[in-house]
Amino acid sequence: MADPFDAALDLLRRLPPSSTSENLSGIIALRPDLEEDLLSSVDVALTTKRCPKSGRDYLCCDYNRDGSSYRSPWSNEFDPAINAEDAQDLVPVGRVRRMEEALNAAVDVYRELYYEGGVSSGYLWALEEGFAGVVLFKKSSAANGAGKGGWDSIHVLEVAESATKRSAHYKLTSTVILDLGLKSSSVDSLELAGNLTRQTQQDLPLGGLRDADVEAGHVANIGRMVEDMETRMRNLLQEVYFGKAKDVVGDLRSIQPLSEAEKDRAAHRDVLSKMNR
């Protein structure tokens, strides 16, 4: 008999990517014992909540979740509130919290410049050696009911500092979830959805001797890596995936009228006949 967890993952891979969230909820309803493993293993479109203390929106994922509560990066508090003893282990403090605050300020500027809207969030937590975190972006749009578009990017990182804290090793795993849909009289309905994951590792220097300089260096390094990865993945989606989809659609149905297509074929036959004389 197949392992239930493996079977669930295999089923999700075979179902439409645009319905992953709904299908995941259905599987969890059938097998509640798989909830934690599935939520930590399956990438789904991000959801948004509003911080009751700051009034700002933030993104929810498995990395800022405890049960049904989510931690806001703006207030550093869970909503709904959780047990105080549990919160001590789940809420970052000290240098990690300072870097988290600086990271959120930086990605908020990046989001406004590159996305011109949407929501961003960054979360960090301490490890035995170094720290880890996630940077999230979400942008959704609708074209007057004729179409939809959704971009969710999830950047998970691990950071290991050198003994001298003059450099650090960064490991970044990025996933982009894309969901596009169009409805019109010319194409009826068209949907393009899926996700792309890439990974990179770099050793980068940390400038300065003070703790504040080291913390600022980490935020700058993380920001540059996320920016470079997003640019790479966007170009890959545009050049490879959209280009391939365009070729497939073009092979299935020509956008030229039949009369124009027949003229092209006739001209092609005429050229071939003259070459064979």
Score class of each variant (00 low, 15 high):
W74Y: 05
A132F: 01
R95M: 04
I27N: 01
V156E: 10
E112R: 15
S68P: 06
T231E: 09
G223E: 05
R98E: 12
S141N: 04
Q199C: 08
G181S: 14
Q201W: 00
S254K: 06
S72I: 12
M233S: 02
K138E: 07
Q202F: 06
P73C: 09
T197S: 11
P80H: 09
A220D: 07
D108G: 09
P80R: 04
K53G: 01
S189G: 06
K183N: 13
N195Y: 03
D179Y: 04
L113T: 09
D3M: 06
L34Q: 11
R198G: 02
V119T: 15
L180A: 12
D108V: 01
A193M: 06
D188Q: 15
G145V: 14
S254E: 13
D228W: 03
I28L: 10
V109S: 08
L252I: 15
K138L: 12
A245F: 14
R95A: 12
G147T: 12
S40Q: 10
V219L: 00
L113G: 00
W125G: 01
L209Q: 05
Q88D: 07
S69H: 04
G55E: 07
A8E: 02
G150D: 13
K244Q: 11
K171A: 07
K165Y: 01
R224Y: 03
Y110Q: 05
D251C: 13
W151T: 14
G194I: 06
S40A: 09
Y123F: 14
S162Y: 04
L204M: 03
I82W: 02
L9T: 01
